[in-house]
Design a protein around this nucleic acid. Structure first.
Lengths: 153, 153
DNA sequence: TTTTAATAGATGTATATACACATAAAATAA
DNA sequence: TTATTTTATGTGTATATACATCTATTAAAA
């Protein structure tokens, strides 16, 4: 869908400004279709992201800060997201022995299992929406990274 | 910045999956740098978006539903955003005469003025970050819209 | 006309973002 | 060692998302 139809607006001062709105809108759209799938697993997008990060290092543990560093949205309140996951017994907290300030997070068997089934659902969704070629995706990645070239830190 | 560095991860199953994460991360980054500017005006990203939409039709009024249709994030709770704007006297609510279910929203002089100064600050920011050409921005827009080609509604 | 359905907006709840601040532990400086 | 600073995490608050429900009003059906 053209952005003009999505936002009911045709007034963009230039292509770069339109691209900014287009990125924001596309991100909302991606989150929105993804969340719909995750709802069947009683997971939010952010909870899924934390589980995915933990699985990436499994069976190693990660402290809260290490998870935060890998989050898509860096301002996520990771301790609170872990609270919800812990209640559902998808992760476990333990205090680090080497540094008692750190809380180490482990994904449980149950967490791994729910991650696996939700991921396969999401993969199927993404496959069904595959409208751009590998080459185009690569081009898209390059453009987004060029846009962020002045990103600090 | 490369996505690999932003997310501290190198495991992407393909370029399309990486593009998905890249869009989500870029959207977060754009919102984050924008919000920093808007803070000087005591505006959130969403409040700014509503003001911008109202100005687009000024001096006409828009009902809540018309605003919602133009929001970047369609699931925004527009009545609540208008609550905050009304408290700050940046918009005014009136009940529609033709249809008493509708609430008509008008941007005030004060709203127009704060929108103008915040917009010029944002334009300056965007100009300083202009790293892609008009042609590349166009390409980016085309790729994002191709990605959303199966979007419903 | 009376009833039913649809629509617009407000409101309630859980979770998240964004950010300030508090607390405990570790690292560093005096 | 003692004091100071830094770091890791947790907690509090305002606002937002996402979605359900309630109310008033309008439109449509019986």
């Amino acid at each position: 869908m053209k952005l003009e139809n999505a936002l009911l607006s045709t007034k963009f001062s230039n292509e770069a400004q339109k691209a900014t709105l287009n990125i924001l809108y596309t991100a909302w759209w991606l989150k929105s279709i993804t969340s719909k799938e995750l709802k069947d697993f009683d997971l939010t997008h952010e909870q899924y992201n934390v589980l995915r990060i933990l699985k990436g290092k499994y069976p190693d543990q990660l402290c809260v800060k290490d998870i935060a560093r890998r989050m898509i949205e860096k301002s996520s309140n990771v301790p609170r997201i872990i609270d919800r996951l812990e209640i559902k017994k998808l992760v476990k907290r333990t205090v680090s022995e080497s540094d008692k300030r750190e809380t180490l997070i482990t994904i449980t068997k149950s967490g791994l299992s729910i991650l696996e089934s939700s991921t396969s659902k999401l993969n199927a969704l993404h496959k069904s929406l595959e409208t751009i070629t590998e080459k185009e995706a690569e081009q898209l990645n390059n453009l987004l990274e060029k846009l962020r070239v002045n990103e600090i830190e």
